[in-house]
Nucleic acid binder design. Sequence first.
DNA 1: TCCTCATAGTCAACTTGTTGAGTAGACATC
DNA 2: GATGTCTACTCAACAAGTTGACTATGAGGA
Lengths: 193, 193
Amino acid sequence: MALRNAILAMLLDGESSGYDLAKGFNASVANFWTATPQQLYRELDKMESRGLVAARIVEQERRPNKRLFSLTDAGAAELAEFTTRAPKPTAIRDELLVQIQAVEAGDDERIQHAVADRMAAAETKLKRFERLRDRLLGESGEAEFLATAPRVGPYLTLARGIAFEQENIRWCEQVLAVLDRREAAGFGGERLG
Amino acid sequence: MALRNAILAMLLDGESSGYDLAKGFNASVANFWTATPQQLYRELDKMESRGLVAARIVEQERRPNKRLFSLTDAGAAELAEFTTRAPKPTAIRDELLVQIQAVEAGDDERIQHAVADRMAAAETKLKRFERLRDRLLGESGEAEFLATAPRVGPYLTLARGIAFEQENIRWCEQVLAVLDRREAAGFGGERLG
DNA sequence: TCCTCATAGTCAACTTGTTGAGTAGACATC
DNA sequence: GATGTCTACTCAACAAGTTGACTATGAGGA
């Protein structure tokens, strides 16, 4: 249900192929929803058969043909209806946090590595998001943009993504500092059962 | 896989029943993983049959008997092994963000309501987390605790939860401010197709 | 020339997560 | 005395998400 509506929301930006959507919903790019390509192709077929999106085949030279999907009136109505329903509460669900929760019973070194990797990924993502924001804002400052732009939804979700990644980075730094200090103090390596 | 390990990580705090775990993994309480009761009972049975946890039935007066689960050596080994594997990258997946992305094509008023609800929920959760942190810290300050406590994992995941909810609150405030101002400026109610 | 990457998908099998209902006793509240 | 809430689950059905393999073409580099 939510995936369906996330796709409809993406199509507000204009028609696009399953492949394009897959790039947008990729975990390393997305700032409001994620999905794998398989999920998208499957869902798009269902949505087409229900008339929520319209598909049009575009023949291309030098590369495979593609199907471009666009919002139909029924799709827009469905999306509008979705915005009237109470959204599900969200909570964190993160394998790295599970590992940190169990850090004293696990492999210190590997976990520190994982935290460093996560921090690097967050930094990359943050930079991407900031470039995206600059492109969205164009010449205007934030206040002007928010007052005059026809759409602010994408800007606001992007703002959430930026804040999330900044928080991620700060937290990773804290964790690394704490684990380093404890290792130096002789807490490293020891296992709790 | 991750749920299994999240359960094992919970059992580091001592034996507990499915019902108790369900409370801990409840979306409004959890700071590192969530699960429904059904998921837990199902997974616990599987884990018991694989020897990762041991169950013991405790007969109670005035209330139903319960099965208390505890970590076995095999379970602890599985959890340790899990900490050596690279965790999956996580991304935001939030119905409210989908609604915000589509705010210009949706129902302004209801969305503002949903944002206000989310903010209230985040405040409740933040307070709960802060109380939990105070209990964890006890008499010690943060620096002392981090230097001397036998386990810091639960503290670090709690810190992530706290930061997440604070960010949530800030973002909700921003969104409400922006939507209010746009409504006053005459952007409200109008729909984009 | 081979190898990899990017485009643009499809198919099948599997694992995870969600929803709703049911059971059953004890206690509190109106 | 009826209703609701808390403990402590179980069962069944369904929806959503993941994994891995496969097809096909063209471009760019080693």
